[in-house]
Amino acid sequence: MFDQLEILSMARGLATHSAARQSAVAQNLAQADTAGYKARDLASFGESYRASTGLALRSTRAGHIADSTPPPALRPHVERGIDGDPNGNTVSIESQMVKSAEIRTQHEMALSVYRTTLGILRTTLGSR
């Protein structure tokens, strides 16, 4: 019953998006010295959430839709418009660290939504 609340679905989506984006940033930082490596990032959460709430198939229970590939919005894409090093690498450690801080803020927001929603549910159920 409570797992179908849209606010919890959105918070779960934000947490999943944050984890996938943090993984892309970690990969960028790991490849900061690799010649020819192009920095990658994900689309914003708003874009990916709007894309995922369309008329696409949605799983209603575990194993309902067996597709292990992440949705297109959660697949890293090469960042455009970034000047790179002479060796072709476009990873900027400073910009990746800023992104990492933004991602942490988004993840903390998802956790805050969970906590607040659960607090409201507890209060509601306790007042019976």
Rank of each mutant, 00 (worst) to 15 (best):
D83A: 06
P86M: 00
P71E: 08
T53N: 13
N87A: 15
A110R: 01
L57V: 03
L14G: 02
L29F: 00
K99P: 00
E94I: 01
G126W: 11
N28S: 04
T16P: 02
R58G: 13
T124I: 09
S44I: 04
T116D: 11
N28L: 01
R122D: 13
M10S: 09
T123N: 15
P72K: 02
F2E: 07
V98E: 00
L125A: 11
A20T: 05
L5R: 12
D3R: 07
M97Q: 08
S52G: 14
H17Y: 13
S112E: 06
R58C: 03
S59K: 04
S23M: 10
D83Y: 02
L121D: 10
L121F: 14
G13P: 03
I103P: 02
T34F: 01
K38P: 02
T34D: 00
E6N: 09
Y114R: 08
A73I: 00
I65D: 13
I120W: 14
A24V: 04
S92R: 03
Q96I: 01
S59F: 02
I120L: 15
R75S: 14
A20R: 12
R104T: 14
I7P: 01
E79A: 13
G84V: 03
P86A: 10
D67W: 00
K99A: 12
R122A: 12
L5W: 06
R21P: 02
I120S: 13
S23I: 01
T123R: 15
L42Y: 10
A26N: 11
F45M: 10
G63N: 11
E6F: 12
E108L: 13
Q4G: 14
R21G: 06
P86C: 01
D83F: 03
G84N: 05
